[in-house]
């Protein structure tokens, strides 16, 4: 069992109503954290979570040819470094789920 801290930004903390929280996970990847642990804990907004974070096809999370879910313009950092969804979580990891960053218009 490993303990990880998850941080939410922008519209994600609006959806979940929380900016960060901890999870105890059993030999899990980031994909499993995003697809199972987080929506299970926040069951009331699980559909909204999936639709916001992942690309979906007819309401189902889209999967790539490697069997990994496809993020919808979101990025994942683990302890400040960009990371793939198949990363296996380690004790003490800080996972930040980043929505598209928002700037001003150039024109």
């Amino acid at each position: 069992m490993v303990k990880v801290r998850v941080k939410y930004f922008g519209e994600l903390h609006d959806i979940l109503g929380i900016r960060e929280e901890e999870y105890d996970v059993e030999d899990a990847t980031i994909a499993e954290l995003l697809l199972k642990y987080i929506p299970d804990r926040h069951a009331g907004v699980a559909d909204k979570w999936r639709e916001t974070v992942f690309a979906t096809v007819r309401g189902e999370v889209a999967i790539n040819k490697d069997g990994m879910p496809i993020l919808k313009n979101h990025f994942i950092l683990v302890s400040g470094k960009s990371t793939e969804l198949n990363y296996r979580l380690k004790d003490g990891d800080e996972i930040a789920i980043l929505p598209p960053v928002g700037g001003g218009n150039a024109k």
Binding site: F9, G10, E11, D14, A96, L98, P99, P100, V101, G102, G103, G104, A106
Partner: peptide, 21 residues
């Protein structure tokens, strides 16, 4: 505007929105 993790919510008279680049 595109790479730095800063998010902006615009609060207007009609509601509020997270702004995307």
């Amino acid at each position: 505007k595109h790479e730095v993790p800063i998010w902006k919510r615009e609060v207007t008279e009609k509601g509020s929105y997270w702004i995307k680049s």
